[in-house]
Design a protein around this nucleic acid. Structure first.
Lengths: 117, 117
DNA sequence: TTGACGCATGCTGATATGGGCATATGATCG
DNA sequence: CGATCATATGCCCATATCAGCATGCGTCAA
């Protein structure tokens, strides 16, 4: 393993897990309660295998848990893993609240990412 | 664009930008104030080209801005882009605060009293 | 102008990823 | 047991990504 390691495995980090838009959508959907794979896949317009793969990643970082229910497997949210992310970003709160010296003016013409959900 | 698109470009999404541990470290360092590339590279134990590349990604999603200062190029934080992330994760706050009905028990590594609802 | 310095880029190699698809695995029912 | 739904996996492909290295480019000093 002198390898070059292109990137830390997505499966090992919550930050990476939620870097995927579709995985974020899954999490949002699961706020409404546990759901079987097929239903999630359908509501998000992805294939069943696709949903399963994303769910696996989410499960491996602990953001979701699964439970057997007959033939189905119900996935439910375990958002505790998101807390570190919330806190980490929170560490920058004062930097977007305080109107920087001249930062505000400087950046006036920029367009924030604005990707809210 | 018939492509299979393996993943949304990192450069287009803040979530992706902060999925990289080293980039997060850069952001943390920049809270202390603007810094030239070489200094960042040195403090984070990465090569100068490496730092430049990460800084580029951060710049393209708007998390940092740069300013010429003689031969140097000073990078400074613009954390506003982190706000959406903070808010998105915040949308899950109640899920890690409220002690779920039986979630708490369930997850604490034990079996519920057979009370499966 | 010539260097030296500071930083950005381009290129390569190894690997991680996500999507599509076919198929294995599991569980339920007749 | 065999048929069938519900999921998980394995494979392949195209692409994204990261690290290392060499090099291009702009700036400042002599």
């Amino acid at each position: 393993m002198i390898a070059t390691m292109a990137r830390a495995a997505t499966t090992s980090d919550v930050f990476n897990a939620i870097a995927e838009p579709q995985r974020r959508e899954i999490l949002v959907l699961l706020r409404a309660g546990e759901r079987p794979v097929t239903e999630l896949a359908q509501e998000l317009g992805m294939t069943q295998p696709g949903a399963s793969k994303h769910l696996r990643v989410l499960r491996e970082v602990g953001l979701v848990r699964d439970r057997r229910a007959g033939k189905q497997r119900l996935y439910c949210l375990d958002a505790r893993g998101l807390r570190p992310v919330h806190e980490w970003t929170g560490g920058f709160e004062r930097f977007w609240n305080e109107s920087f010296d001249r930062l505000d003016a400087y950046v006036q013409g920029l367009r924030p990412t604005g990707n809210t959900e």
